[in-house]
């Protein structure tokens, strides 16, 4: 019989300053949005219990400061991450262009054992702003970039309105779970957590 011990999944959120990392985390964990978040200094941290097919997991979410200079503090947070969430603001081109830097920086600092297949999820946030009229990064463009980086799952979200946030984090959790090394998973062999083949991770939950 599998142990009932809860498993820990570590997720790190990266992206330029002001794209909504703290808001996304709080919307997902506390179902709250505030216009009064302070700029994150260093890093913030929240946890959420999630259940997949009868099993409980603790999702440990690290929210980081977006300013480039804080990356030197990142090592402690990057290490041991099971999934990395890259966030940009669909209304700010630069935040999209920087996704590549964030991805590479993460791979360098976290040095995962299999960088080619390390699970990332990309979120294009703030789709609610100005009814979408101030948008500068098209969904097509974002998806093309994600495809070019090994089919990274992509979600368009609004932390303010709670749009697509749950779906995105569900995907994040699933991908984090798939990244866990086999021996650490107390998995009864009757349950197929991924709901499909392990090879399909990057397309498994793309909506």
């Amino acid at each position: 019989m599998a142990t009932r011990r809860r498993m820990l999944l570590k997720v790190i959120i990266l992206g330029d300053s002001g794209v909504g990392k703290t808001s996304l985390m709080n919307q997902y964990v506390n179902r709250k949005f505030s216009n009064q978040y302070k700029a994150t200094i260093g890093a913030d941290f929240l946890t959420k219990e999630v259940q997949f097919e009868d099993r409980l997991f603790t999702l440990q979410i690290w929210d980081t400061a977006g300013q480039e200079r804080f990356q030197s503090l990142g090592v402690a947070f990057y290490r041991g991450a099971d999934c990395c969430v890259l966030v940009y603001d669909v209304n700010v081109m630069k935040s999209f262009e920087n996704l590549n830097n964030w991805r590479e920086e993460f791979l360098i600092q976290a040095s995962p054992s299999d960088p080619e297949n390390f699970p990332f999820v990309v979120l294009g946030n703030k789709v609610d702003v100005d009814g979408g009229n101030s948008r500068v990064v098209s969904e097509k463009k974002a998806k093309a970039w994600c495809a070019s980086k090994g089919n990274i799952p992509y979600f368009e979200t609004s932390a303010k309105e709670g749009f697509n946030v749950d779906a995105a984090f569900e995907c994040i959790a699933k991908n984090a779970l798939k990244n866990e090394p086999e021996e650490e998973i107390y998995l009864p062999d009757t349950i197929d957590v991924a709901g499909g083949g392990r090879q399909q991770r990057s397309t498994g939950c793309e909506c």
Binding site: K38, I41, G42, A43, L73
Partner: peptide
Amino acid sequence: INPSMYASQWFITVFSYS
């Protein structure tokens, strides 16, 4: 637990942040 997880803002903002 590493102090960067809780104390960096103590130094960076001299306790004025939170």
